[in-house]
């Protein structure tokens, strides 16, 4: 059973193509990062999965059922990007209201509020809450009724570093229990260690999807070796130049170190040559980060896109 499956899904709004032939799926026990510039189609994809609207073309199935079916909705938790809730109610009252609507056990209410760290604030009105507290209330709301599919839109906005770490730990626990989780975020370095797979959207197209290793391979981005010379940088340069795989390698000096960009397939060969030469005192390896991969796939037009309207 998949948590959701999008098959060749397109969505048109006022003739504009918001999503174009998306194929994407999420299995239980997996955290999927959904990335893209503003207006790339992240929110639309989420709304399709939530059953808030129907695709213009293609098929959306969620938890082996129809998106938007009440029985299915009951098993989905959703944290929207910016939710104010009802300012005149207390956190506990709001969560109880949503628990009733979801058919969740009301005993879950204080439990969840404790879990997100709102024990002390659960009986004060939400209008006094900070952004981070509202965010945590939203999270507690999403966790009502033990969802099997959890969709979080920018869950870490307004959270301090400790709360953010707590959140990710919680997500890992849920994932290990078999929940499928979708995580939308712009804070790429923050989510990188926690996602199992990433999907990158631009202008309604799914540019790339896979785990970080396969994305790196797809992007074919070089790995950077940072070398500290035993004797001199020049001697190191000579070694690299003589190495078999050195054709077209990028080298630059920086602060008495040498940085070499190498294709991942040739990395080990070069490292072995370097080790054998005895010219290396220290060696660090920098893999392309999620952010590097993201920028690669978004392309140079990416910067222009970022200002786009949602």
């Amino acid at each position: 059973m998949s948590c959701f499956r999008l098959e060749n899904v397109s969505y048109r709004y006022d003739k504009a193509l918001v999503l174009n032939g998306i194929d994407l799926r999420l299995e239980p026990g997996e955290i999927l990062g959904l990335f893209g510039h503003n207006g790339a189609g992240k929110t639309t994809s989420i709304k399709l999965i939530l059953g808030l609207m129907a695709p213009s073309q293609g098929k959306v199935s969620v938890l082996d059922g129809e998106a938007g079916d009440p029985k299915i909705s009951q098993c989905i938790g959703y944290l929207p990007e910016n939710v104010m809730f009802y300012p005149q109610l207390t956190g506990r009252e709001i969560l109880a209201h949503f628990a009733r609507l979801k058919g969740a056990n009301l005993r879950q209410v204080p439990e969840l509020l404790g879990q997100v760290g709102l024990d002390d604030a659960m009986d004060t009105r939400v209008k006094t809450y900070s952004k981070g507290m509202r965010q945590r209330l939203g999270l507690a709301q999403a966790l009502l009724g033990k969802p099997r599919l959890l969709m979080l839109d920018e869950p870490t906005v307004g959270l301090d570093p400790v709360a953010t770490a707590d959140l990710y730990r919680l997500l890992r626990t849920l994932r290990d229990e078999g929940t499928g989780i979708v995580l939308c975020s712009h804070v790429l370095p923050g989510v990188e260690p926690y996602i199992d797979r990433a999907a990158i959207l631009t202008d309604g197209n799914l540019k790339a999807v896979g785990d970080l290793t396969s994305l790196r391979r797809q992007a074919n981005m070089p790995i950077t070796l940072s070398l500290e010379p035993e004797t001199s940088v020049a001697a190191l340069e000579a070694v690299v130049n003589n190495a078999q795989a050195s054709a077209g390698l990028m080298m630059r000096r920086d602060n008495g170190r040498l940085h070499v960009d190498v294709r991942s397939t040739e990395k080990m060969a070069l490292v072995k040559t370097l080790m054998a030469s005895g010219e290396v005192r220290d060696l660090s390896i920098y893999q392309p980060t999620l952010e590097d991969v993201y920028v690669h796939f978004i392309g140079s037009g990416g910067l222009a896109h970022r200002g786009g309207a949602q």
């Binding site: 939530l50 059953g51 808030l52 009440p70 029985k71 909705s73 009951q74 989905i76 959703y78 929207p80 910016n82 939710v83 104010m84 809730f85 009802y86 300012p87 949503f98 609507l101 979801k102 058919g103 709301q141």
Partner: peptide, 15 residues
């Protein structure tokens, strides 16, 4: 809708 709860409510088992 202005409070953001309409979107949320519509994701609940509520028509």
């Amino acid at each position: 809708e202005e409070g953001g709860t309409l979107l949320l409510l519509m994701t609940y088992p509520l028509s």
